[in-house]
Design a binder for these strands. Structure first.
Length: 429
RNA sequence: CGGGGCGUAGCGCAGCCUGGUAGCGCAUCUGCUUUGGGAGCAGAGGGUCGGGUGUUCGAAUCACCCCGCCCCGACCA
């Protein structure tokens, strides 16, 4: 992508309304644009990151056996009356009347919706286990939206729903999601600690929320220091072991009853990026989502639901990866892998080399943002640092004479002088 | 939902207290010079001062009502 042809409205100054660093940087880097309180448009750079995050979530869900579907944003209120949940969400739920005066709502979640799909088509235990998920926009009319996409009213969420014959099966499904979550966050370079949690309006008895540690987190969290020793990227992570370790957000944490000795207890702030629930027959029973078991008896299925705040993750990623100059994207979610700073577009030799590298990198399948604007070096470097691409290639007359360009890592700041072949090889790898 | 604050050019702000029809920096456009860390000079464009009502000869400025946004607290992917 040529920057001169892209749409990247960066800001030099920090908009007054943004309080936390991720919100400030998302606005300054031209990723989002606020339309109303808690409602944002995603501009090209922000949308590119959102799609990267989405893609990882899709891959890990499917790896864990979940099947993608797409349910609507608008639902009939009838379904929620049937589940008995119509009033549980209170004013958080946006209600709408359609032209026939039928009561509709903008879905804050889709348990009823998916349970309805299930009950219409599944009859036998032989079709279980089943896990259906989608990534769809939700609306929760928060009393006080804030912190940009971290607490928006409209937000993109991945929600998966598992169906099993019995509690034991449901727990297996739960554990599979538990593991998939750890892997998902890990792939984005984030360590999320699973914590015991309340079930809220979703209902149920077993629940964990996944919290990323960050100074600007919304909730106070407490956890066993043993978590610090765990390698979350290990292939043989044990869900049972992780579940046994103590970790809880403030609301669940009782210092008097805490099983962890004080010297082993760690406290910090956390950003909740995922939340999983096992709620048994909470929806299947009232809504008649049943199967015939091996014994010939009809019984309600055991369900769980599993959410990841996809749009919130974009903010959380920035909270976890930035410095005073801007964002530092982990490669897995970067909007572009490389930025080329064409220092002197008016210099034939230097500009020619930059063009050539742009072309070669693109053909090697590398996502490149090519800054060939007629701007000063300082402005270009500042833009690159702000938007945080993992790699910057600087091409100027000085190096071009020697046939060299500079490669710089945004994360480490390390630089290397390379010739074009070595550069392409290194970045294409 | 309780408490507080703000709304003046695309962004950041001043002007308001003490009424006299709007200003600064950045950004934008044109020209020239410049070009390895957010350039310089010269010129130009851009505002129903959030909206309404009232007071007044006269309202960005005073009063009242409404709307929007932000912050603190109680609640949540």
């Amino acid at each position: 992508m040529r920057l001169s042809r892209y749409f990247l409205p960066v800001l030099k100054e920090t908009p007054a309304e943004a309080q936390i660093v991720s919100h400030q940087l998302m606005l300054r880097a031209g990723m989002i644009q606020q339309l109303a309180a808690g409602i944002y448009s995603w501009l090209p750079l922000g949308y590119a990151v959102l799609r990267k995050v989405e893609a990882i979530v899709h891959e890990e869900m499917q790896r864990a056996g979940a099947i993608p579907i797409l349910m609507p944003t608008i639902q009939p209120a009838d379904l929620w009356i049937e589940s008995g949940r119509i009033n549980d969400y209170g004013k958080e739920m946006l209600r709408i009347q359609d032209r026939h005066d039928r009561s509709m709502l903008y879905g804050p979640t889709n348990e009823e919706n998916v349970t309805d799909i299930f009950r219409r088509h599944v009859r036998s235990f032989k079709q279980l286990p089943l896990n259906l998920y989608h990534i769809q926009w939700k609306f929760r009319d928060e009393v006080r939206p804030r912190f940009g996409v971290m607490r928006g009213r409209e937000f993109l969420m991945k929600d998966a729903y598992s169906f099993d014959l019995d509690a034991a099966g449901a727990e297996t499904s739960y554990d599979a999601m538990f593991l998939a979550y750890l892997r998902t966050f890990r792939r984005m370079g984030l360590t999320a600690i699973p914590m015991q949690a309340d079930t809220g309006p979703i209902g149920g008895k077993l629940s964990h929320e996944f919290q990323i540690l960050a100074k600007t987190g919304e909730s106070e969290v407490h956890f066993d220091a043993a978590f610090e020793a765990i390698d979350f990227s290990a292939d043989d992570l044990s869900v049972a072991e992780l579940k046994a370790l103590y970790a809880a957000a403030d609301d669940k944490h009782d210092p008097a009853a805490c099983p962890v000795p004080a010297e082993r207890l760690r406290s910090g702030r956390g950003i909740e990026v995922g939340h999983i629930f096992y709620f048994g027959t909470r929806y299947s029973a009232p809504m008649g989502a049943t199967v015939i078991g091996p014994d010939g008896a009809t019984q309600p299925v055991h369900m769980g639901s599993y959410g990841i705040g996809v749009s919130r993750l974009v903010g959380a990623l920035i909270e976890a990866n930035h410095d005073e100059k801007g964002i530092i994207w982990p490669e897995a979610v970067a909007p572009f892998k490389v930025g080329i700073v064409d220092l002197r577009p008016d210099d034939e030799l230097s500009h020619g080399l930059a063009e050539q590298l742009y072309d070669r990198l693109q053909r090697a399948g590398v996502e490149v943002l090519f800054d060939e604007r007629d701007e000063r070096a300082g402005a270009k470097f500042a833009t690159m640092e702000l938007i945080g691409l993992p790699w910057t290639v600087t091409v100027g007359p000085r190096g071009a004479k020697e046939g060299k360009v500079e490669l710089k890592s945004r994360a480490s700041g390390e630089t290397a002088e390379l010739d074009p072949d070595a550069l392409v090889q290194r970045l294409a790898g």
